[in-house]
Design a protein around this nucleic acid. Sequence first.
DNA 1: GCCAACGTTGGC
DNA 2: GCCAACGTTGGC
Length: 146
Amino acid sequence: MKSEPETYSIDDFKNEKTTWWEGVRNYQARNFMRDMKKGDLVLFYHSNANPPAIVGLATVSKEAQPDKSAFDKKSSYYDPKSTPENPRWFCVEIAFQKKFKKILPLEELKKEKSLKSMVLLKPGSRLSVQPVTPEEFAHILKMAEL
DNA sequence: GCCAACGTTGGC
DNA sequence: GCCAACGTTGGC
């Protein structure tokens, strides 16, 4: 899951301990969240960061429910097409697990042969919530020395 | 700040 | 249902 550190960083997350992943307004990303199960592992990625990098680990603590920020007129995530009766957007709650002592910059990830087909590394890939295979996940945890 | 890649919108 | 216009993402 990607977040811009200026908006919501791994440190913000560490302080809060859990957070509802509100504001995703992309159907593919939404579908991935809807499919998430409690206990699923999550990589926390800093996008638009210096350097862009995987910076931590989380778990899904609550499965998908309607994204309330879509109903809130004052929210920048407000979407009039999503209503409590017929919600269009969903989000999961994730729980903080770890901040990597050794972050994994995008540049390093690109060098890894076994991560070649990661969605994150596909050119033009902008999905803010995206799948990671068990093999990729294991490799990344190893790189992070976990 | 630029811009390429991508997704969405809306006129026809 | 096509597709041009527009908005957004995110690396650089």
